[in-house]
Structure formats: structure tokens, C-alpha cells
Amino acid sequence: MLSRAANAIYWMNRYLERADNVARFINVNLHLMLDLSVETASQWMPLVVTTGGEKYFREHYGDNAATQENVLQFLIYDKNNPNSIASCVRSARENARSVRQSISSEMWETVNKMHLSFRQASADQTHQDAPYDFLEEIKNSGHLFIGLTESTMSNNEAWHWARLGRLLERADQTSRIVDVKYYFVLPTIEYVGMPYDNLHWAALLKSATAFEMYRKRYRRIAPKSVAEFLLLDREFPRSIHYCLVHAEHSLHAITGSPLGTFQNPVEQRLGRLRSDFDFARIEEIIDFGLHEYLDNFQSRLIQVGETIYDDFFAVEPPSQSPTQSQSQSLLPATGEAASQGVSPP
């Protein structure tokens, strides 16, 4: 398919997945804050860090400004924050607009309605105190969009680009939330007994909509098991391992080369990354250092993204001077977000 269209579909899905994750982080944190009621201010900063906007936030809101009000403004409405829900929805819609012919009308209308109701919500300040309904709406629209992708779109190349974008983004988001929560919740992995400890772990799982499935699998909440579930589970659709396996399926469906082989740098990089997760054990990861492991994972995932761009989207004929395309301009926002990944403790 058209490179520009593939690029736009890929990014449209990344942005929608990102908006969904940000909405979920906020929702869970709002509930958690109600339970904790003390030392609350410090508990909003992890969200800023998770979404990769720490530097921008400190510059524009101040060093000790991580109040609920500021962080909600920053994560929901701030149009200059490339990872705010506002920016993600807008970018998703711009991308959707440029590939109207490749996606179904129902998918387009869902993204368009999201954009329109978001605009209305930002104009109408009533949401800002208790944005639960509004965040719920963002999440539901995201789910509706994925459902429509499944039920109205052929499983063709465009569909695989959509899934590839969604799963790579989801793997990235899951790794961020685990990394940050570990850092804030648990200074050392052996540390147990902190007040409200269970609440924190439950919140972490809920951020990834993983709480119920986790309970079915492990029942008892233990830090190591939580990390294992979110990183290595083969069945849970938001675990990093699951995302990588299915992203790789889509990649190979696009290229046509057999799984387990590679014919281009993307297949090599993604395949190698996935196989690391295939054979990893959580004890090894913790011995190595969970943060270091996730940091390394994120850099490799960014490389996969860059290679996708080089191999598929930046197709130039041999004798042609490079031309600027609209969708290329969408890259820096994400590139920036990626490079602002979680900094080491």
C-alpha cells in the first residue's frame, strides 16, 4: 500500500493507544489519591514521568508543581504537550483524515466524534474537576475504534499496520508504567510492608487493566509476580511479551517473509527483541535490574520504530530528491517523546 497511508495508519493507532493509556493512568491515579489522602502531591509526578514529559513539565509548570490540577491540565488539555490526550486525539484525527480512503467510514466517524467531543469538553470547563466520565469516554471510544477495526476492516496490509502501531505503542506504555511504578513504589525490590503497599500494586495493575486477569493467574499480589505478569505473560493482551509476539505476526504478514526468519532490519530487530522475551525469566531480569532492563527495552523499541520508518515509509526512488510529506512532520512529536523516556533513578 501507499507508504504515506501506511505511515498514517500506523501513527493513528499509536496515538489512539497512547490517548487510551494516558486516560487510564489518570483515572487510576484519581482513584488511588482518594484512598491515600496523605502526601498526595508526590503521587502525581510519576504520571508526568511515565508519559515522558518531565522536562517540559518542569520548564512550564515549575519544579514542585505536580499538583492534581496541574498534572491533569498537562496530561489532558495541554496542546503543547505532544503526549497529552488533546494532542494525541488531534494527531490521530489528522492522520485518520489523510487516510480516509483506507479505513472504514465507521472508524473515521469514531475518531472524528472523539475529536469533536474533546473540543467541546475542553471548551466546557465542567469536566476539569472530576473528569471521570470524560476519561471513560476516551477509553470507550478507543475500545470502540479497535472493535470497529476488527469488525469493519479486512485483515489486509492496512489492518496489519494498524495492529503493528497499536501493539508497539502498547508495549512501550506498559514498560513505562512498570518502570515508573517500580521506581516510586519500591526503592528496593525486597522492600515490603510499606503502608498502602497493596493499594499501589493494585493501582499499577489497574493502570494496565490487568488487575482482574492478574488475580486469576496469581491471586496473591507480589511485586515480582506483577512484573512477571506485565512483562512476560503470554496470554494477557497488554503484557510486553504478548504485544511483541503479535506485532511480529503483523510485520511478517506485511512483508510476507516466514516467521523466525528476517529479510530486512525491522524483522531482525523486532524478532531478536521478541525472542529475548521468549526465553527471559523474571528472576534474571530483577537480578539484572528491572529499570536497566526496561530502559534497554525502550531503546531497542525506539530503534524498531525508526527502522520501520526507514524501511517502509521513506521510500525514495534512486534519482529523486527527497520530498517532504505531511506525515513525516508527525514524527518529531513522538521521536521527542521517545527520547524523553524515563530517566534512571
Partner: peptide, 18 residues
């Protein structure tokens, strides 16, 4: 397609695909 999706070579028109 947009203009930047197309190019010509030897008087034939091509589109850039994946």
C-alpha cells in the same frame, strides 16, 4: 494520493508503496 506520493521515471508514473 498527494503529489509527494508520486514520482516519474522514464515517463512513467509510480507511487511510493511499502
Amino acid at each position: 494520493v498527494e503529489g509527494s506520493d508520486l514520482f516519474t521515471q522514464d515517463d512513467c508514473v509510480y507511487m511510493r508503496t511499502t
